[in-house]
Design a protein around this nucleic acid. Sequence first.
DNA 1: TCCTTCTCTTGACTCGGTCAAAAATGCACG
DNA 2: CGTGCATTTTTGACCGAGTCAAGAGAAGGA
Lengths: 157, 157
Amino acid sequence: METTWQDQLRTVGLRVTRPRLSVLQVLAERPHADADTIVGAARALHPSLSPQAVYGVLKALVAGGLARRIEPAGAPALFELRVGDNHHHLVCRSCGAVADVDCAVGAAPCLTPSDTAGFVVDEAEVVFWGLCHGCRVGTPGETAQVLQHDDRGGVRA
Amino acid sequence: METTWQDQLRTVGLRVTRPRLSVLQVLAERPHADADTIVGAARALHPSLSPQAVYGVLKALVAGGLARRIEPAGAPALFELRVGDNHHHLVCRSCGAVADVDCAVGAAPCLTPSDTAGFVVDEAEVVFWGLCHGCRVGTPGETAQVLQHDDRGGVRA
DNA sequence: TCCTTCTCTTGACTCGGTCAAAAATGCACG
DNA sequence: CGTGCATTTTTGACCGAGTCAAGAGAAGGA
């Protein structure tokens, strides 16, 4: 947040454009927005913005390392600006809300599986599934936009 | 594996049908197959099987707890029969190969995030990203069917 | 065996996202 | 402070994965 968006863009070799600045601002305000939400919000800043432009911008940002793409199973992809700080996510089964979690046990708890089966692991991605406070208390339908109720949850990892 | 597929199906209240037995057999042979692969393989056992039938069967199996659906980011969903034993997955960034991993540290290492942000967590899903032996050694293009090379990996969780 | 109910088939459709060509814009250079 | 080329955005077609719905067809209890 110290450096401006402009600087950040230039640093990774991207040109500074209105669509990009708009998307960056939207992402800064909404930490876990999906492409559609971003299009809607960014249009407030740049009315003629097309969905494809947003996809293009997001792809550029992710490729440049300014944004991260997360894909909770059964939901459209979400984007966030927190990158490189090794954190995971809590996802609400009911409303799809997402919260950041710093890595659970110490530094990198799950990075080393017991048996790597010949794989060389470079990243461990953790998603915690559950219910957010609102949905538990009974304010569903508020931010509600049910994600998936497929299998009977509870496997506990 | 003691009980027959038939028993398993009946146990969860599902009728025993040819499509279901075919899909179960395919899943038993290929532990992490996607819907498309299942359709192809199952047709060998039941030629008139339609893709939608497979989707229906898979949905029923997952709902009944006989199968589990996993969705690696950027790839079609995969299905497996190992359920209820709390294991995670290794996914190859290059060829999409998937291997099972028993939970890393002891029983449930990541189940309790440091700060739950008001969420009640019931499951922690872990995906280890990396390269499988074959792709590392240089046999890419073998099982190769590149998944996604989007962001420069290496965040290490 | 018959009948009810669940399941499969068939086909249309949705959603999230990509691809490609052409117009427009950023910005390095003179 | 213009000018020109490469990068971006626009516009619009397209694709894969999966869902939805109606009717034909089995499964299996009575």
